[in-house]
Simulated scan of single mutants.
Amino acid sequence: MGHKEDLLEGAKKCLVEKGFVRTTARDVVAASGANLASIGYHYGSKDALLTQAFVELVQEWGENFSPERPGEGGSLERFRGVWEGVLAHREQARPVWGASLEVALQPERLPELRALLAASQGEGRRGLVSLLTDLPEEDLTDRDVRTLGAFYQALLNGLMVQWMFDPESAPSAEELTEGMRRAAEGVLRRSS
Rank of each mutant, 00 (worst) to 15 (best):
H89Q: 13
F20E: 03
V21Q: 14
L140D: 00
S192K: 08
P107C: 07
A93V: 05
G74L: 11
Q106K: 09
G10E: 14
M180W: 02
R181Q: 12
G179L: 08
A48G: 03
M1Y: 04
R114E: 08
V28R: 05
A25F: 00
S75N: 06
S120A: 10
E138G: 10
A115D: 10
H3N: 13
G186S: 06
R80T: 01
S169V: 15
H42R: 09
L188H: 07
L36G: 01
L131K: 01
E185R: 00
R69H: 07
A183Q: 08
E185Q: 13
A48T: 07
L116A: 14
D6E: 13
G74R: 12
F165H: 10
E17S: 10
A150T: 12
A37L: 13
L176M: 04
Q92C: 04
T23A: 12
S38H: 11
D6I: 03
P136H: 10
E174I: 00
R78P: 11
A170C: 05
R125G: 08
R189H: 11
Q121R: 15
E91Y: 04
E123Q: 13
A184T: 14
G186F: 00
E56P: 09
E84P: 06
G62F: 05
A115Y: 06
K4I: 02
Q153H: 14
V96G: 03
I39V: 15
S169T: 15
L148H: 09
E138R: 13
L8K: 12
E9G: 04
S38E: 13
E5I: 08
A34S: 15
S45F: 09
D166N: 15
H89W: 07
